[in-house]
Write a protein that binds this DNA or RNA. Structure first.
Lengths: 193, 193
DNA sequence: CCCGACATATATCAGACCGATACAAACTGG
DNA sequence: CCAGTTTGTATCGGTCTGATATATGTCGGG
């Protein structure tokens, strides 16, 4: 799913500038399910113009800098639907937080707890941002399906983190127990599995 | 979080070949929280050798091709813990499935349903793969925390998809209603928000 | 007994992408 | 009036992905 397709998708709903497209993926309706950066969006929009999949006009605004508003063309819509026909790749998650946390044994307990708390705060922010933005607007059913999927996942993550935070507090003792178990294993098997 | 750090993390637990590291991220204990491809792993391992953060020896196996087994060095451990000290980026999700589904209005209903069913099957596979691999091994507490986080998220996704699949069946009718609402809005406001 | 399919294993590379950075216009508050 | 924030466009080095190539070995079927 390349940046061109993502931009076309954003333009399917309504015309938008590069900056506005970016906001759809950062805090907007796509924020829970996909991400794309400026460094991909602006070159992609240029390509869309080249292929005549979108048109562009400059809009003057008062109180703000001018913006370049892109609109999808019929050819663009066709190309987009064509791109959707490919079999989608499986979901991909990237959580630096959890990766780091999984090495909590090697970190000071204070660091681990601070990390979890920052993690929780982060999900709280994102959840409230989503709710604020969309709860009043009327969404078509498929959009609502996807929207609520994102909310559900965020809420689940939050609940898990809150209820299991304490387990990381019990870190030190449990780790000693674990080491003890390993030692017994080594004594019994000679270290071979 | 670059590929070098991810490889060091993999080697923290035990020595491994590039192929084995990859499997940790595809189906293994990291599969629910991060991903990294061969194209990043092999060059990263070469860099680790250059920096003396890992050593390497060739292991002959019977019934299989030889493999190059990498072990982390004390300097490597130090470098890894150093890399963990950076403030982690927020979680990033990439779901082509949900992106496509959110444009279900523009697709034949059969395609949408097929998509959801494939999506469900995909999560079922990943969930059972995780369970099979790890439910018997004894994990230290932080690992169990992360491991169960992944399982919880998968289960939540599955339950959501199963219980809300029917909503997409009601697609056509609801979309007509939605279009009707939009038309009324246009008549009232002239299309301006 | 060979053939294709599959798992194991390493490696490379063009093309795409990210994150940082730069620039600029306009508002906002101290 | 100046620093900071928001809105807005753009570029670029370094990194990563996904595809591809190559090779060894197993296994089951015709």
């Amino acid at each position: 799913m390349d940046a061109k397709t993502l931009c076309l998708g954003a333009l399917m709903h309504s015309e938008a500038s590069g900056y506005e497209i970016r906001k759809l993926f950062e805090g907007g309706p796509f924020s829970a399910i996909y991400d794309v950066s400026f460094g991909s969006i602006y070159p992609a929009l240029t390509v869309l113009l080249d292929r005549e999949w979108a048109t562009c006009c400059v809009a003057e605004q008062d109180g703000r800098p001018d913006k370049k508003v892109y609109s999808i063309t019929p050819a663009g819509r066709a190309a987009f639907l064509d791109a959707l026909a490919t079999t989608p790749a499986p979901d991909k998650m990237r959580s630096e937080m959890l990766f780091i946390l999984s090495f909590g044994d090697h970190l000071p307990r204070s660091v681990v707890l601070e990390l979890v708390d920052r993690y929780i705060a982060n999900y709280e922010d994102r959840l409230s941002a989503i709710d604020d933005r969309c709860n009043d607007s009327v969404l078509p059913p498929v959009r609502r399906f996807v929207h609520n999927f994102g909310i559900t996942m965020y809420e689940t993550a939050l609940e898990y983190l809150r209820t299991h935070r304490a387990e990381l507090l019990a870190n030190e003792l449990s780790t000693r127990e674990h080491v003890h178990q390993l030692e017994e294993q080594v004594l019994t098997t000679g270290g071979r599995q």
